[in-house]
Amino acid sequence: MFRASRYIKFKQFWILGIVVFILASSPAFAKDLFKWFPFTRKDSLGEWQEKIFKGRVLYSVYEDKKSGYLSAYSKESASGIFYRLTFNPKKEPMASWRWKVVKFPDKKEGDNSSTAWIEKDDYAARFYVIFPGITFNSTRSLEYVWDKELPKGNIITSPYFKNIKIIVLESGEKNLGNWVYEERNIYKDFKEAFGEEREPGPAGAIAIMTDSDNSLSTAEAYYDDIKVGYKNEPESE
């Protein structure tokens, strides 16, 4: 009798443990705290993953006495840095960062040929928010870019995949060489890009990329103070 009740308790304990494990490991329940990437230390990139597409972009952290920043230099190359995190874009919709473009990739202006789309898919600075789907082809992504030509505020679909929406945040050379602060409501942008009826799932990663592989040129940009997953007012740092 005693043994049987102990066995039941032991069994219940295990069932509870399995249920807690499943819930805890589910992306819907997983939640990271508000993330801030100040890039103040040389090893700040340690927790980021490098993803190489065509050649390697030189990502490095420059630190000085006051602060630091992330530098990206691309020479006919495309690679990004990628950080996995989870936040609910409906509850914590805000993301902000500072960026500075030093050099735009040299794209062919006015080229409207069928291949021009891909050739023009080089941006001095990109900031991604990635929403993983249940399957590999249901992943969606918002891509904020700073481009030399595309009009500010434009939302376009990537030539590679319909689930990638490119939002032009900055345009032209007016602020070339200057730090520009951006703050976006990810939830609102998702709705605007993918349609009001579509609800975003949990965001699963952010990424940064500077590329110049298609235009076979060079591009350089700096990034700093990336904050993601907070409500309208930034949490105390």
């Binding site: 993803k51 597409f53 990004g80 990628f82 898919d121 992504s141 891509e143 990537s158 590679y160 995949f161």
Partner: peptide
Amino acid sequence: GIPEFIAY
């Protein structure tokens, strides 16, 4: 990871 890489 990065959607463009997946697509390409």
